[in-house]
């Protein structure tokens, strides 16, 4: 699946998007997989309460299931307007 990062999440991880091969069942499982990879992921995902997630461009929860999802995006709370 495609994993996208925005704002300071993108800066901490050091890239805007990547293709990830995963069997993770939920968003939280995917986060654990990413954190185990490298320190920069760990730095980005330290505090999940400071993060939001979207599945196929719709806001979702960290316990949401990933079955059938093509695009996951992680970002801080939004500051539009």
């Amino acid at each position: 699946m495609e994993v996208l990062y925005f704002a300071w999440v993108r800066e901490r991880i050091g890239l805007p998007r990547e293709t990830v091969e995963t069997q993770a069942a939920t968003v939280a499982d995917l986060v654990e997989e990413l954190k185990a990879r490298e320190e920069r992921y760990n730095a980005a995902f330290t505090d999940l309460s400071a993060l939001r997630v979207a599945l196929d461009q719709e806001l979702a929860d960290f316990d949401a299931r990933l079955e059938g999802v093509r695009e996951v995006a992680f970002f801080p709370p939004m500051t539009g307007g």
Partner: peptide, 21 residues
């Protein structure tokens, strides 16, 4: 303000900072 995916970053002489929600 809080449900459209925009993120603001402010640049001052002191550096750059993401605007907190």
């Amino acid at each position: 303000k809080s449900r459209a995916p925009f993120w603001k970053k402010e640049y001052t002489a002191d550096g750059a900072e993401w605007v907190a929600a």
